[in-house]
Nucleic acid binder design. Structure first.
Length: 415
DNA sequence: TCTGGGGTCCTAGGACCC
DNA sequence: TCTGGGGTCCTAGGACCC
């Protein structure tokens, strides 16, 4: 019998912003961008949620629902930093920790009674430590499976603890909407509703065989989930078994759709550089490169190409991506979004002919130097010639003027 | 409701090989 | 040249999560 904790930070992005600007506390706050921008809500404060604002909602819609809200840009670097602090608190509490995303983690607390006492007492200790060390609230779900722990932390929000006692899993789940089950999204929910299945209890009453026939492998996993089992997919893996990224990608949505080839290719060059940089940071070489292209009507295509070897060089990535673009873009069609995606890591060192090797080495050195400059002066300090020529000029949150230079860092007051 | 960006996992068809 | 089956890799798309 296991005891799992699921620790989920409350309104994480909003709470971090409040640490930097305490005047935001208690107010309706929307993180994600300006109200007139293309984009969606990344996080909404509880005060904003009362107006119907929620994450993934278009910013313009959020503004209509709650014009008095304060809209702030997201600061990914800040969130990564605080995520690291959260991780440290959890790690100090129990060595069996797995961050499931930037703001949530699973802990295996099996057999820690002697150290922390019964589960609820342990949870309260952790809850207090988290607040003291980070200034942030979290909610904690406790259960014999990770699935039930996750669902119970959601029920515990905000700032609460909920323990589902072993043996009571099915009873806890039965009255909940099927949508509460991780993995059941809009589409599956609709499919289940069409069968008259609305609550997890409805699901639990069905035959496994019926669900498997209806939904395949996923249906079988669903049957297990309805009983509270860690069935299928990500829930089936060991805690702490996370091995590193399987893909690295960057994409960009234009402020206005464009069919200007120079601008499109300059953007692909920039995205290729960003992907190349991440690959070098992670010491990875990608064998498969993929272009993503979204037109004005939101129709989206992806086109991939696999190389005989791996690469982490901006120029090689860009060359492949540009070829894919030229072969697949409907000339003249306005583009909304472009993306560059790398995956399929090459195993170890791949051989190259000597000439290629030498050229390769020189590029690697040049790019390492560019990475150091970017670290020091900001991302726009150095760029491939192609991204400059085409005029990659769209502003970013990090750097509104599009100029090099590091912004002065403000420290939150209570840390 | 005019719809981000970074990921994971699954399905399905075709190529190719044995 | 009337046609099997399995394994693996590649590609494209889609559901879902935070």
């Amino acid at each position: 019998m296991h005891t799992y904790f699921h620790v989920d930070m409350d309104a994480f992005f909003v709470s971090v912003e409040e640490l930097y600007d305490p005047s935001l506390r208690g107010k309706p706050v929307v993180v994600g961008g300006r109200p007139n921008e293309r984009g969606v809500v990344a996080a909404a404060s509880y005060a904003a949620r009362r107006f119907g604002v929620h994450s993934a909602m278009p910013l313009r819609t959020a503004y209509k629902l709650c014009p008095q809200a304060t809209f702030v840009d997201g600061h990914p670097q800040r969130y990564r930093e605080y995520s690291g602090r959260v991780h440290e608190v959890l790690q100090a509490f129990s060595p069996l920790v797995e961050m499931a995303s930037i703001d949530e983690a699973y802990l295996d607390l099996s057999g820690t009674e002697r150290l922390y006492g019964p589960p609820l007492r342990a949870a309260h200790i952790l809850h207090q430590r988290m607040k003291a060390a980070t200034g942030l609230n979290c909610s904690i779900g406790i259960a014999s499976s990770r699935l039930v722990a996750k669902i119970s932390s959601d029920q515990a929000k905000p700032n609460g603890v909920l323990w589902v006692v072993p043996g009571r899993e099915a009873a806890f789940l039965a009255p909940l909407d099927v949508r509460k089950v991780p993995g059941v999204g809009k589409v599956t929910e609709k499919n289940l509703h069409a069968l008259g299945i609305r609550k997890v209890g409805d699901l639990a009453r069905l035959d496994d065989a019926f669900l498997e026939e209806r939904f395949g492998k996923w249906g079988l996993a669903l049957a297990g989930k309805s009983r509270g089992e860690d069935a299928g997919g990500w829930f089936d893996t060991e805690i702490g078994a996370g091995e590193g990224p399987k893909s690295i990608s960057h994409e960009h949505t234009f402020m206005e759709d464009t069919s200007d080839v120079a601008q499109l290719e300059a953007t692909l060059s920039k995205l290729s550089e960003m992907v190349g940089r991440r690959l070098r940071e992670q010491h990875l070489e990608a064998r498969t490169l993929q272009l993503k292209l979204r037109y004005t009507d939101f129709s989206t295509i992806t086109r991939a190409h696999s190389l005989g070897r791996g690469t982490q060089l901006d120029t090689e990535i860009f060359e492949e991506i540009r070829a894919l673009f030229r072969r697949n873009w409907r000339p003249g069609a306005a583009v909304r979004l472009l993306g560059v995606h790398a995956s399929g890591w090459a195993e170890g060192e791949e051989q190259m002919d000597l000439l290629g090797e030498e050229r390769h080495e020189r590029w690697k050195q040049a790019l390492a130097a560019a990475d150091r400059l970017r670290d020091r002066y900001g991302d726009s300090a150095v760029s491939l010639a192609a991204s400059l020529r085409g005029g990659f000029r769209e502003r970013t949150h990090e750097n509104p003027a599009g100029l090099p230079g590091k912004k002065p860092a403000r420290e939150p007051e209570n840390t």
